[in-house]
Nucleic acid binder design. Structure first.
Length: 483
RNA sequence: GGCCCCGUCGUCCAGCGGCCUAGGACGCCGGCCUUUCAAGCCGGUAACGCGGGUUCGAAUCCCGUCGGGGCUACCA
């Protein structure tokens, strides 16, 4: 049997890391079994769905490297893979359910439902639908419908009864039908609900494994019941542990922007995101934390998925991002970090600046975890120095500082060549003459030139900056000291 | 409230009856290196929620309890 799995985001927002993690697991599973990974768009919520969200979701999926074999954009044997294009099909299934007595029209108004729900809750009864319209005789119901009275279609749950299934992550599940109400499958507007559309698609697309968040575990019996009523084959379900925010609650908007796009824009690498997310609810084994996509595909095992929820830890993600940045070869680092610098600068680098950056880049690469830090660390090279006041106050308070700046300026002005090694020997000579330690002697120069006590290595920085600018900045700092 | 899920360091994961005086990773703390900051290296901190069983032996099995979470929509 060929594995066929899918991810079905709703275009009502950006791709959330929780959905992305589900997509990632489905993708790994499909690739491991050389199966088919499908991307479907669940846009039954017509009010909130937009083409812009759909595009951004697909972009995020591509950015993460989750390529799909069938689905939106790439096609396949099942049409557009967009639910809004299949309302006719869902209506057909619903009509057949009604004809078969598996579903029935419900004429209860939202106001009535609301009132009954409130009363039920007040009296301590289950708040679900009470089945009022279930007992309407078919002829009366049909007449009211054709007469134009708005009606939702509800699925008639077998009562009494229960639904059991084996979840690949959570083992044996059992749900008493007494806890499941007759849920709506088609709204009065004719638009199907998620339960119907998603399940019909899973049956029609011959999905073999449904891997999704644990938040839908309680809805699974509904989906199984629909599948069985359609005469379809029930897929294997695997409910993934939820992703939590630092507060231990389901990751959501309240935890800030948790979209994949936000992480991309904050300077994370897709390969780091991929690696980190695959660790949430799964482990590679052998105490190995960093691994490639290929290795993950090779090792992925649905049976090894953990049951407990995982907190999304941006500290660890950032660390991992740094690991991936440092693993880049030098050329790739320059190429991939450059956009962040240009974004910070608000302009493109000139060829000369690009050459300057290339010299310093290996030192920058050792020091950053996120792309924007490459800009912060080199801004002094491409625009005027901006003094960090805390750095200034800390370093420039000593009386020897003025002497250091003067002496450094003089020695550097007289220097024959202008390379890191020469600069270093000149400045170390200064240290001896002035009888100063490296910290006391070099930090004022660093702050004068880069504006901060934190910078790439000093001599290389001066080399790249050039003699003229270096001398000018030493003088400017001295002038600022003297007021 | 009802239904369901989960419970090993602060966090992620390993552990699936003896190899556990519980291992790895992030974080944190300290040290080395060092012109700063990083990186790197070395070391440290820190957990089996609790109570009963079962067993020669339990983090591992069972029950209870407590705690956390999810769902409970004509949203997905």
């Amino acid at each position: 049997m060929t594995v066929r799995v899918r991810i079905a985001p709703s275009p009502t927002g950006l791709l959330h890391v929780g959905n992305a993690r589900s997509g990632l697991f489905n993708w790994l599973f499909a690739r491991h079994h050389e199966g088919t990974f499908i991307v479907r768009i669940d846009d039954t919520d017509v009010e909130r769905s937009t083409p812009e969200f759909e595009r951004s979701i697909l972009d995020a999926l591509r950015w993460l490297g989750l390529d799909w074999d069938e689905g939106v954009g790439v096609g396949g044997p099942h049409g557009t893979y967009r639910q809004s294009d299949r309302f006719g099909r869902y209506g057909e299934v619903a009509d057949r359910f009604v004809a078969d007595g598996r579903a029935y029209p419900c004429f209860c108004t939202p106001a009535e439902l609301d009132e009954r729900r409130k009363r039920a809750q007040a009296e301590g009864r289950p708040p679900g639908y009470d089945g009022t319209c279930r007992t309407l005789d078919a002829d009366t119901a049909a007449t009211r419908r054709t007469g134009g009275e708005p009606a939702a279609i509800r699925f008639a749950i077998d009562r009494p009864g229960e639904t059991t299934f084996h979840d690949a992550v959570r083992d044996d599940m059992r749900f008493d039908h007494a806890t499941i109400d007759d849920f709506v499958i088609v709204r009065p507007s004719g638009v199907p609900t998620y339960h119907l559309a998603s399940t019909v698609d899973d049956v029609d697309y011959e999905i073999t494994h449904v891997m999704r968040g644990e938040d839908i575990l309680p809805s699974t019996p509904k989906h199984i019941l629909i599948t069985e009523a359609m005469g379809g084959t029930v897929p294997v379900y695997a409910h993934l542990p939820l992703l939590f925010g630092p507060d231990g609650k389901k990751l959501s908007k309240r935890h800030g922007d948790t979209s994949v796009a936000a992480y991309r824009d904050a300077g994370y690498l897709p390969e780091a995101m991929f690696n980190y997310m695959s660790l949430l609810g799964w482990s590679f084994g052998d105490d190995i934390t960093i691994f490639s996509r290929e290795q993950a595909i090779e090792r992925f095992d649905i049976g090894a998925i953990s049951k407990n929820p995982a907190v999304f830890d941006t500290d660890k993600l950032a660390w991992m991002n740094g690991e991936y940045i440092r693993a880049l070869d030098g050329e790739a680092f320059v190429r991939r970090s450059r956009p962040a610098i240009e974004a910070g600068l608000g302009r493109a680098l000139t060829d000369h600046e690009a050459d300057q950056y290339a010299v310093l880049a290996p030192h920058v690469q050792e020091r950053v975890k996120l792309w924007p830090e490459a800009f912060e660390m080199t801004a002094w090279l491409f625009s005027d120095v901006v003094y960090d006041e805390a750095s200034w106050d800390k370093v420039m308070a000593h009386e020897a500082v003025l002497t250091v700046l003067d002496e450094a300026g003089r020695r550097l002005a007289e220097l024959d060549g202008w390379d890191a090694a020469s600069i270093e020997s000149a400045l170390r000579g200064m240290l001896e003459t002035l009888e100063l330690g490296a910290r006391r002697g070099f930090q004022p120069i660093r702050v004068a030139v880069t504006g901060s006590t934190i910078s790439p290595p000093l001599f290389e920085s001066l080399e790249v900056l050039g003699r003229d600018v270096t001398l000018a900045r030493l003088e400017a700092a001295a002038a600022r000291l003297g007021h």
